[in-house]
Amino acid sequence: MTDEFIIKSLSALEDLQEVQRLEALVWGMDCVPIHQTITAVKNGGLVLGGYINGQLIGFQYSFPGFKDGKGYLCSHMLAIHPAHQKKGYGRLLKLAQKEEALKKGYDLITWTYDPLESVNANLNIGKL
């Protein structure tokens, strides 16, 4: 990693539209609606964007969950632009997610991943 990787919390409509474009590029499926991500961010969720030279190259999206009287953070999606994958940026976003979750008072993060996506399984189970 030679370029500086900057992570920031996102909540502005324009930023979330940019996240949606990256989501479509990486995952090639229907995107999480912006009204959902805005609502999640305003109610305890997180959207963190990772930037290199001012360009969004990755993001993570998580929303609050609640079970058995306890709140936690549900880590739902991570995406890294194909040109920047396998360089450690996903792990950096997940570590930043942990720090932000702790600041919000969460002591548990759950996550989902596609078991057919071995890179995601390795990150979530092997590295985190």
Rank of each mutant, 00 (worst) to 15 (best):
I7Q: 07
I7Y: 08
S9W: 00
S9F: 09
L10M: 15
S11V: 06
S11K: 13
L13W: 14
L13Q: 15
L13F: 13
E14F: 06
E14S: 13
D15R: 02
D15L: 00
L16H: 12
L16A: 11
L16R: 15
L16G: 11
Q17P: 10
E18W: 00
Q20H: 06
Q20M: 07
R21T: 08
R21E: 09
L22R: 04
A24I: 11
L25T: 12
V26T: 10
W27E: 10
G28A: 12
M29H: 08
D30P: 07
V32T: 14
V32H: 03
P33L: 14
I34N: 08
T37Q: 07
I38V: 15
I38M: 12
T39G: 10
K42M: 09
N43Q: 15
N43S: 15
G44F: 00
G45Q: 10
G45R: 00
G45W: 01
L46G: 08
L46Y: 04
G49Q: 02
G49D: 01
Q55A: 05
Q55R: 08
Q55T: 02
Q55D: 12
I57T: 01
I57M: 02
F59H: 02
F59N: 01
Y61M: 02
Y61Q: 03
Y61H: 14
S62Q: 08
F63G: 00
P64L: 06
P64D: 01
F66P: 03
F66Q: 04
K67T: 03
K67W: 13
K67S: 14
D68E: 07
G71I: 04
G71H: 15
Y72C: 05
L73N: 05
H76I: 08
M77H: 12
A79K: 03
I80H: 04
